[in-house]
């Protein structure tokens, strides 16, 4: 028995079932991300200081361009099927997949940057901040042996590390600093545990990245083995591409808000 309404619209809804399904799913996704945006707002207004300038704006902008480009290639892939141009569909969706991988590659680079970025509380009350270059073989923070080397700078107060968009912060000279373990009171990287900003940043972008991975897997399937359906049931295949496209556009739409909220404001 065939699944009903995979091609033709269901009389009571006016759309085929998969399309109804994806819109209901997207409705739940709006509320999922809405809840997290709400958490972001409450964390931000409840914080004494909110970080600025912690993320790489050129990389975030590039990733926005990449996702927007993937959105147009997704819709053009669907248009190609509508016009019976299967080879053009393959081309456009190959570009979509390339964009998805590029986005994830840039995001991975940004994550790596945060996990190798350390804030070190010094015994003299000052703070050192920078990217880890290396640790000596005998480095042990508990036993206070060895040393750690970072590429960064020192400040007198932790609050100076919060707003990196203020004029004086833009002229900070970074240099290689080696700090003996004996002079370190505490050190930790800029992972999700660092503060509420990094927590919500990793939560929002991590969940978004999972959506990118999920969408790329579906689009990859439809581009590869799933595209065999074009020969047997082209209308149903076109509808599948449309449904996957709707999800992909939603992923783009979420990023349109994440980018300014996390990178610029």
């Amino acid at each position: 028995m065939d699944i009903p309404y995979t091609v033709h619209p269901r009389p009571d809804t006016g759309v085929y079932n998969a399309k109804m399904g994806i819109w209901l799913f997207l409705a739940s996704e709006v509320m999922l991300f809405g809840g997290l945006f709400s958490a972001y707002v409450l964390l931000r207004v409840g914080a004494d200081e909110w970080p600025h300038g912690w993320l790489n704006i050129p990389l975030g902008t590039a990733n926005t361009f990449v996702l927007i480009t993937s959105s147009i290639t997704t819709v053009l892939a669907w248009v190609s099927l509508k016009n019976n141009q299967f080879s053009r569909f393959k081309l456009f969706h190959a570009i979509t997949l390339a964009c998805a991988l590029t986005f994830l590659g840039i995001k991975s680079f940004e994550y790596h940057d945060k996990f190798t970025h350390y804030e070190i509380t010094l015994a003299n009350g000052k703070f050192a901040d920078g990217h880890l270059i290396g640790k000596s073989r005998d480095f042990d923070l508990e036993k206070k042996t060895g040393s750690v080397t970072i590429h960064g700078y020192e400040v007198a107060q932790e609050v100076e590390l919060i707003d990196l968009q203020r004029p004086e912060a833009r002229h900070i000279q970074r240099e290689e600093i080696t700090i003996p373990a004996a002079e370190i009171k505490r050190m930790g990287n800029y992972g999700p545990w660092h503060n509420t900003y990094t927590a919500i940043y990793f939560t929002l972008t991590g969940l978004h990245a999972l959506h990118v991975i999920g969408g790329a897997l579906v689009i990859g399937f439809l581009w590869g083995p799933g595209s065999r359906m074009w020969k047997t049931d082209p209308e149903r295949f076109t509808n599948r591409v449309e449904v996957s496209g709707l999800f992909w556009h939603f992923v783009d739409l979420i990023w349109i808000f994440l980018f300014p909220v996390l990178y610029l404001l």
């Binding site: 091609v7 619209p9 759309v15 509508k82 016009n83 020969k231 082209p234 209308e235 076109t238 509808n239």
Partner: peptide, 15 residues
Amino acid sequence: MNNSMTMNSGHSPES
């Protein structure tokens, strides 16, 4: 290829 499709997804063939 049997792609003389009749589009039923609510959109006319794209121009």
